[in-house]
Nucleic acid binder design. Structure first.
Lengths: 99, 99
DNA sequence: ATATGTAACTTTGATTCACAAAGTACTTTA
DNA sequence: TAAAGTACTTTGTGAATCAAAGTTACATAT
């Protein structure tokens, strides 16, 4: 591929999805509310980006409890990790291999 | 800023504008047609992204000739370089400073 | 002189995306 | 019982993306 942007993953063009993935790369499991606060998003906005990532098989959802309150957490899948690493590699490649 | 995506530049959410900038970071001057071929874009699509970058003061345009044919070239501005470097730093920060 | 070609756009129109705000269902705490 | 929290979904609006076609201006070939 000569085209320097051809290997970038379209899913990660979104800064929010990029942010979610980068958080999940270094944190095994993160709750909906923590993501919401870290990224300063409304519920609806976060939920829609999370479902895009889930539909693409990049993360998985765990519905549980903290004490008696519902608590949904998210973690990255193998496929998500692979795709995200691939995207970062493409970014690095684009930036450095141009000379 | 705690929010890991808060320092990303919105202009560079677009893969195409990211590609243009990364090309112009390492090539002093690049023609419209070269950009078009490198990024595999239609005229209109490239032109619109270029004008967004220009409106933001990130690149400048030189209208010249090659022999007798018109030849428009683009180069990065100081502001563009600064913004792009800032964006890359924010990306790196986001990816690495999360633990 | 006419037609064809090339460069660099602009315009148009359709589709998709992003986002806030409001609504929903369920539970919990005061 | 009322208020608040969790995790959504729905709705509506505006913005962004893109291909395709049209445009302007010059160049070259016939």
């Amino acid at each position: 591929m000569i085209n320097p942007i051809g290997n970038l993953n379209k899913i990660f063009d979104s800064r929010i999805r990029l942010g979610v993935m980068s958080i999940l790369m270094v944190n095994e499991e993160v709750s909906f509310n923590d993501l919401k606060q870290m990224l300063e998003l409304t519920d609806g906005n976060l939920a829609s980006h999370l479902s895009t990532l889930e539909e693409n098989g990049f993360l998985k959802v765990h519905k549980g409890f903290v004490g008696r309150k519902t608590n949904t957490t998210y973690s990255i899948t193998k496929a998500g990790e692979k795709a995200f690493k691939g995207h970062l590699a493409a970014l690095e490649n684009m930036i450095r291999s141009m000379d």
